[in-house]
Deep mutational scan, measured.
Amino acid sequence: MKGKVVSYLAAKKYGFIQGDDGESYFLHFSELLDKKDEGKLVKGSMVHFDPTPTPKGLAAKAISLPLE
C-alpha cells in the first residue's frame, strides 16, 4: 500500500503514516527495509508498506521509500 508520513519522531524511532485507504498506521524504524532511508522519513514523504493489524491497532510493516 502507498501512504504519506504524517509524523516521525527520530529520537524515539516511531511515527505515523496515513494510508491511501485513509487509515492511520504506526510506523517504527525497525520496519524500514533500508535503514539509510531514515533521514527521508519526514512529514509528507511518500512510502510503500504492508498494512498489518496488531493487537494495538494498525501497523506499517516492510516500509520502503519510492525510487527517486
Rank of each mutant, 00 (worst) to 15 (best):
M1W: 04
K2I: 10
G3H: 01
K4S: 08
K4A: 07
L9K: 12
A10E: 09
A10Y: 11
A10Q: 11
A11D: 12
K12A: 08
K12T: 11
K13F: 05
K13I: 03
Y14Q: 05
Y14G: 03
Y14W: 12
Y14N: 03
Y14T: 05
G15P: 00
G15C: 03
F16K: 05
F16V: 06
F16Y: 08
I17N: 00
I17T: 01
Q18H: 11
G19L: 02
G19V: 03
G19P: 01
G19D: 03
D20T: 09
D20E: 13
D21G: 04
D21L: 03
D21S: 04
D21Q: 03
E23Y: 14
E23W: 10
S24Q: 13
Y25F: 03
Y25W: 02
Y25D: 00
Y25N: 01
Y25Q: 00
F26V: 04
F26C: 04
F26P: 00
L27V: 05
L27W: 04
H28K: 07
F29R: 09
L32A: 01
L33Y: 05
L33I: 12
D34N: 13
D34H: 09
K35C: 08
K36H: 12
K36G: 12
K36V: 07
K36A: 13
K36F: 08
D37E: 07
D37L: 09
E38W: 07
E38K: 04
E38N: 04
E38L: 07
G39D: 12
G39C: 14
G39R: 13
G39I: 14
K40D: 04
L41Y: 02
L41R: 00
L41E: 01
V42Y: 11
K43C: 10
G44R: 03
S45Q: 15
S45P: 06
S45N: 10
V47Q: 01
V47I: 07
F49V: 00
D50G: 06
D50F: 15
D50L: 15
T52H: 14
P53G: 09
P53H: 14
T54M: 07
T54I: 04
T54N: 07
P55L: 10
K56I: 08
K56Y: 11
G57N: 03
G57F: 04
L58N: 08
A59F: 10
A59Y: 12
A60W: 00
A60K: 01
A60N: 02
K61V: 09
K61P: 01
A62R: 15
A62G: 11
I63N: 02
S64L: 10
S64R: 14
L65W: 06
L65A: 06
L67K: 14
E68W: 11
